[in-house]
């Protein structure tokens, strides 16, 4: 089996208060193939973001395991997780993705620089990615000079430029108008097909759900549907 990402019995309980316990995820089990285009959907509060955070190593699971490309993620130290995020996982958040003090080019190169790539390599890859995303004329601008859609495209460019194996996108179209959202989704689809990057979305935008080939529905912290459509 081409299992790229395995989620076994993942559970997450929050304790915001000494008395109060909130169970965000309950015994989640999922298998995701390499190169998949997955969407996690469900009503708000269903645990989509929590699950995404756990997969990305941004949060610790209370129970269970996450195995990414044969490597156990749960239980790793902060430093190790940081390295994995840097080298293998790309993130696109709903908003505020970019480092506001750096230019578009510097933002896109950021992860690559962290990885220690040479300036030349960064230049080449940056150009490649921005041309694909049609933002190559924005390289010198600062994030506050861009529109919402442009910002998201730059975020995607950054995420992809560092050649991760997996991209996690949390509600990437939530702040965009339908036209821009459509455009972004098409781009991401293209990337998925051309670069072979596994992309997992969390969204309740029907547009996103429509594009996905693997759809997982969560409710009250449990998987209630897990379908592959393509």
């Amino acid at each position: 089996m081409n299992t790229f990402l395995t989620i076994k019995h993942i559970g997450k309980t929050f304790q915001p208060d000494k008395e109060v316990e909130v169970v965000a995820l309950r015994d989640i089990n999922l298998d995701i193939e390499r190169g998949a285009f997955v969407v996690l959907s469900g009503p708000s509060g269903s645990g989509k973001t929590t699950l995404l955070n756990i997969i990305g190593g941004l949060d610790d699971a209370t129970a269970g395991e996450v195995i990414l490309d044969g490597k156990l993620l749960t239980g790793l130290s902060e430093v190790e997780l940081s390295g994995i995020r840097r080298d293998h996982i790309g993130f696109v958040f709903q908003a505020y993705n970019l480092i506001p003090v750096l230019t578009v080019k510097e933002n896109i190169e950021y992860i690559m620089k962290l990885q220690g790539r040479s300036q030349q390599e960064c230049d080449v890859r940056c150009l490649e990615v921005t041309q694909k995303l049609d933002i190559d004329m924005l390289l010198g601008k600062l994030p506050n000079q861009l529109s919402g859609g442009q910002q998201q495209r730059v975020a995607v460019a950054r995420a992809v430029a560092a050649t991760p194996k997996l991209i996690l996108a949390d509600e990437p179209t939530a702040n965009l108008d339908s036209k821009t959202a459509e455009s972004l989704m098409n781009l991401m689809q293209r990337l998925n097909e051309e670069e072979g990057v596994t992309i997992i979305f969390s969204s309740h935008d029907p547009l996103v759900i429509a594009k996905a080939k693997h759809s997982i529905i969560l409710k009250d912290g449990k998987v209630i549907a897990d379908e592959r459509t393509g």
């Binding site: 995020r85 790309g90 958040f93 992860i111």
Partner: peptide
């Protein structure tokens, strides 16, 4: 966000 995308503390 910087931490998320792989910056160490």
């Amino acid at each position: 966000i910087m931490l998320a995308i792989g910056t160490r503390f």
